[in-house]
């Protein structure tokens, strides 16, 4: 059974965003979108999570935090960059303290477009992440 597809637990971190995507991530949990239907739970703790949702781009100060969170997640894990800022820096790309998108700091598996990303596309991004999670699980099992 593909358990990771049935029980993906997420953690959300705001790299440096404008809040727009963040509240849309939270909106996914609420009755209209209700992602718990798919077994998705927002854990809030990297050690329990399978999927890291990052909104916003990475700046000087958030970089070590994002690295720590990523490091503290147990394998298999998937990173989803939510919104255009997380993808490339978006409208803030030219700001003076940008490090770029999330992939400047940690490997990203799924990019979700939008400014702000709509709940539907966020859910779609997570669903895409599930397949990757399942694949990583197989790779992990294959490793000695």
């Amino acid at each position: 059974m593909k358990l990771f597809q049935k029980s993906p637990w997420i953690i959300h971190y705001d790299g440096a965003s404008c809040n727009g995507c963040d509240i849309e991530v939270l909106a996914c949990l609420t009755p209209r979108y209700d992602v718990e239907r798919f077994g998705i739970i927002n854990t809030g703790n990297p050690k329990h999570a399978d999927i890291l949702l990052i909104t916003g781009y990475i700046n000087e100060q958030s970089q070590p935090v994002v690295r720590t969170i990523y490091e503290q997640m147990p394998e298999p894990k998937v990173v989803v960059a939510i919104g255009i800022c997380a993808t490339s820096g978006g409208i803030f790309r030219e700001c003076y303290n940008t490090k770029g998108g999330v992939d400047s700091t940690i490997p990203v598996d799924v990019y979700v477009p939008g400014c702000a990303a709509r709940p539907e596309s966020i859910i779609d991004g997570v669903v895409q992440a599930l397949a990757i999670l399942e694949r990583k699980k197989k790779e992990m099992a294959a490793r000695p």
């Binding site: 059974m1 990771f4 049935k6 147990p74 298999p76 699980k137």
Partner: peptide
């Protein structure tokens, strides 16, 4: 599902 998934995670 949650329980069995957790058993498959990295230690």
């Amino acid at each position: 599902y949650d329980l069995f998934k957790l058993f498959q995670k990295e230690r």
